[in-house]
Design a protein around this nucleic acid. Structure first.
Length: 165
DNA sequence: TAAGTGCGTCGTT
DNA sequence: AACGACGCACTTA
């Protein structure tokens, strides 16, 4: 089920499964899955409405540079075991701090899988709330971003993170 | 600084 | 078997 999330930087698109928030798309992005239609928030089942309220608050907090107090349940069951390990590690990177791909690889006990970590970041279904934007290339350089590098820069700027020139 | 080449590495398709 | 949101060690402008 798909619901819209208006924010100061555009309207994000949230997709819910029975387990929670399953995907979050940036504004103006071709709908990758689903039927492309969104459900009016007040017509959604009560549980999804509750989750959606949390999603909306959390996302707007993030974009305002504050750490969300709570998140909806995140349904990352679609990921492989490796991807889920990476995504879990990403959730442990605090607001305003960053890690390199190599540091994330270390954190999950696979110090040589740096490139594979990049792949898992790119497959992150819930950007922003699972903060893949806090993963930079070595030496505080920008690296890549599935949602477009502009978004990565913008999200980092929200958290006051400086990049290497 | 910046741009290019090459290679090790490993999960995903 | 081929391909990356990597990282490192280079070389060349």
């Amino acid at each position: 089920m798909t619901l819209l999330v208006p924010t100061s930087l555009g309207t994000f698109v949230a997709h819910y499964s029975a387990q929670g928030l399953a995907r979050l798309d940036f504004p103006n992005r071709p709908t990758s899955d689903d039927d492309g239609k969104s459900t009016a928030a007040d017509l959604a089942p009560a549980q999804i409405r509750r989750w959606h309220t949390l999603t909306s608050k959390a996302l707007n907090e993030m974009l305002a540079g504050r750490a969300p107090k709570s998140l909806p349940p995140l349904d990352i069951s679609a990921g492989t075991q490796f991807q889920r390990r990476v995504w879990q590690a990403l959730r442990e990177i605090g607001m305003g701090t960053t890690k390199s791909y190599a540091q994330v690889a270390d954190a999950i006990g696979k110090p040589r899988a740096t490139r594979a970590v990049g792949g898992a970041c790119g497959a992150n279904p819930i950007p922003v709330l699972i903060p893949c934007h806090r993963v930079l290339a070595a030496n505080q350089r920008l690296g890549g971003f599935g949602g477009g590098l502009d978004w990565k820069r913008r999200l980092l700027a929200c958290e006051g993170i400086e990049l290497f020139a």
